[in-house]
């Protein structure tokens, strides 16, 4: 698989580490114990979108620039559709 790192260009997938589903958004948790919703945390930590088809995933260019990326990839064909910096892709997302 080739992944087009925004900084480094097309690089082989073995230079990258994959974390998985980029969908879940970390719940907003207040500083005390009262406000955190266990279901939201269960969902964030343990449940995963697992589609056969296009999937948005976190990958890190560990063997290169160390950037975390959001890679849109087809899990049925391994075709990489798009790559963007996680910094940009996750900015301004609403909590799920």
């Amino acid at each position: 698989m080739l992944i087009h790192c925004p900084f480094c260009g097309a690089r082989p997938s073995e230079e990258f580490a994959v974390l998985g589903d980029a969908g879940p958004k970390r719940p907003e948790a207040p500083g005390d114990d009262t406000g955190s919703d266990p279901e939201a945390w269960y969902d964030y930590v343990y449940l995963r979108d697992n589609p056969r088809g296009v999937h948005r995933e976190f990958w890190q260019h560990v063997g290169g620039c160390r950037a975390w990326l959001v890679v849109e990839r087809d899990t049925a064909t391994h075709e990489v559709r798009s790559v963007e910096l996680a910094r940009k892709a996750t900015a301004g997302r609403e909590a799920s």
């Binding site: 698989m1 073995e14 994959v18 995933e57 990839r73 049925a76 064909t77």
Partner: peptide, 13 residues
């Protein structure tokens, strides 16, 4: 291989 897949085939690494 380490990435999500339904393809029943992997890669060289």
């Amino acid at each position: 291989d380490g990435y999500n897949s339904y393809a029943q085939r992997g890669n060289l690494p």
